[in-house]
Design a binder for these strands. Structure first.
Lengths: 338, 338
DNA sequence: TTGTACGCGTTATCAA
DNA sequence: TTGATAACGCGTACAA
């Protein structure tokens, strides 16, 4: 096993100083054309690539990107990771993951330590952790660049990728009304998350516009989990008259509703329409498959990666202005005309 | 924003040389007790932690662990990542992820480049990529430590964590026979994966022992996906007499079988018992919920992390001998006595 | 038990 | 356009 070539080897073989090689590596403009070509040749002959450690030590950069999240949806996480990697590995960055626990009291410290220890150049934060003002300001203090993925623009657009959940739920509302429904109920997400509010409001406000009102007792707060979906559905489905539509804040909860409907002998979608959010793996596998809302997760992740890298490298790109993406409605079997 | 403290600051404030501080950081034994305590005090006062880059540059170590995989089961990936992190972040390592595409022709190069670029100290490889002899030897050439997670011990035990799928399927076979079944069918995984073979053989051999034979036309090869489960189930469920049990190599495929049974009006589990493998999210959400086999994924991941770190740090631990874990049967609603 | 001095592979300052 | 040379923060022969 031979040792990795260094910048010195390149310099020696090219007959120039390593400073010049360094210039070529970093794409500086002030290098003679012939010199540059010679060096590029030697680099590719040697299959040389600069050592990240040394580079980081000298330039105070690690070429490492962090990903912070506390999200139970594994499929979402996986899509984000792959999306981010598609961009960042092409630009010479690696991705370091850091799942955490939002509700823990040492959550901020835990994340701060992570960015400190790992020396990452920047970090992408997924919802719902991304909604934490404290985390964002802690990172700002440490002078760590970040991009937050969320459902509301709670920061400079350069630091945000937002999914327009509100608009998506407006679409869902319109669709359900177009099916002739008016007797609806909602299992919302925890009210402390902006995303829950956005979705709930987007849904209800559009319904109001269309002349449909949801009575207060038909809007209950769930915890986004399957079990929570089950217990909320039980409370909703014993009301009389029984709701004919339930929108659940996550597919997991929608699956819980489906389960309860099945237990109670309520047929879906004949007697009850159900809609979820996420386009989780479940959504297409469950019988009947779920009408739901799909965010362009990979696109969002790629956008976030582009933004964080642009910020780190100090590029002044138009990309800073691009920040809003719109989820779209996926109609499956769980919803039907009355 | 103040600058991070360095080893020099610690040395100065403790009134010793940095060589001694270095000894304390790295847990060398030959340091006076009083000196050590003094230094530890200063370190915690300053909230000092050694810079990974500098450390890596000097010692030729990066304190980075890699994770290589090509597995469509996001939940599995997520569990592995969290399991690995539980161990490695406690020991001062970070986790760098690298999803890849096994069937691509440049797969080996892609992974080699990854370990080279990222400077990781070691890598954990998940199945089915872990079954690649070529990847393993390529890593060995590059002198990168690795641990492979698989269903067969295809390497030194120090480099392996194996899940005894064969034994688990033996359990499933016994269980199904105990329910009085004998009329069974199998949708196996792709035959080029060892895991598919292990599961199939574990199942069939135990059945044989118990006097149950599966005719050849009732063992068909799927691709582990939902769609594949659907097409295989169609072929199986038109056979007459119709099989009363189908074991599918993954829960995804089992969900496909469930779907087809539903379409054909075959009630599960009354007329057809179904079993899967993975304990995927689906398994407990689908109606009826799936009898399946669960691997102790987090335990396996933690074991793998312990092993890779032990190898990197040259520790001669007993942990090298521990390598086998056994998945266990989870009985749910999709299987029933005839 | 402790300390001195150098090297790791890069970037950056300053001069030529 | 190029090149000596000093950082960067830490580990480690070697010496005391």
């Amino acid at each position: 096993m031979q040792k990795r070539p260094t910048i010195n080897d390149v310099a020696r073989l090219s007959g120039v100083s390593k400073r010049t090689v360094s210039r070529v590596i970093n794409g500086a403009s002030n290098v003679g054309k012939a010199t540059r070509e010679k060096i590029d040749q030697v680099i590719s002959d040697l299959n040389f690539s600069p050592d990240k450690q040394a580079r980081g030590l000298a330039a105070n950069r690690s070429y490492l990107l962090g990903l912070i999240y506390d999200n139970p949806d594994a499929m979402f996480i996986d899509q984000v990771q792959r999306g981010v990697l598609k961009i960042c590995s092409a630009k010479g960055y690696e991705l370091v993951v850091h799942p955490c626990t939002y509700r823990n009291s040492d959550f901020i410290d835990d994340c701060s330590n992570f960015v400190k220890r790992s020396n990452i150049d920047g970090v992408i934060i997924l919802s719902p952790v991304s909604e934490s003002k404290e985390l964002a300001s802690s990172l700002r203090e440490q002078n760590i660049k970040y991009v937050r993925m969320a459902s509301v623009d709670l920061d400079d657009h350069a630091n945000m990728v937002v999914s327009d959940d509100r608009a998506a739920l407006s679409d869902l509302a319109r669709y359900l009304v177009s099916l002739g429904h008016s007797n609806m109920a909602v299992i919302s997400g925890p009210k402390q998350f902006c995303s829950s509010i956005e979705r709930l409001e987007g849904f209800c406000q559009t319904l109001n516009l269309l002349g449909v009102e949801i009575p207060e007792e038909r809007i209950i707060e769930g915890e986004n989990s399957y079990e929570s979906g089950i217990s909320c559905a039980r409370r909703l489905l014993i009301q009389s008259p029984r709701p004919q539509v339930i929108f659940a804040n996550t597919d997991e909860m929608a699956a819980g509703v489906l389960k309860v409907a099945h237990e109670m002998g309520i047929s879906v979608p004949e007697q009850l329409s159900i809609a979820g959010f996420d386009d989780n793996l479940l959504a297409s596998r469950v019988i009947p498959s779920l009408t739901t809302i799909q965010r362009p997760v990979s696109d969002m992740a790629q956008l976030a990666a582009k933004k964080i890298i642009a910020t780190i490298e100090g590029a002044q790109l138009d990309i800073e202005d691009e920040y809003l993406v719109k989820p779209h409605l996926i109609i499956r079997e769980s919803t039907r005309r009355v």
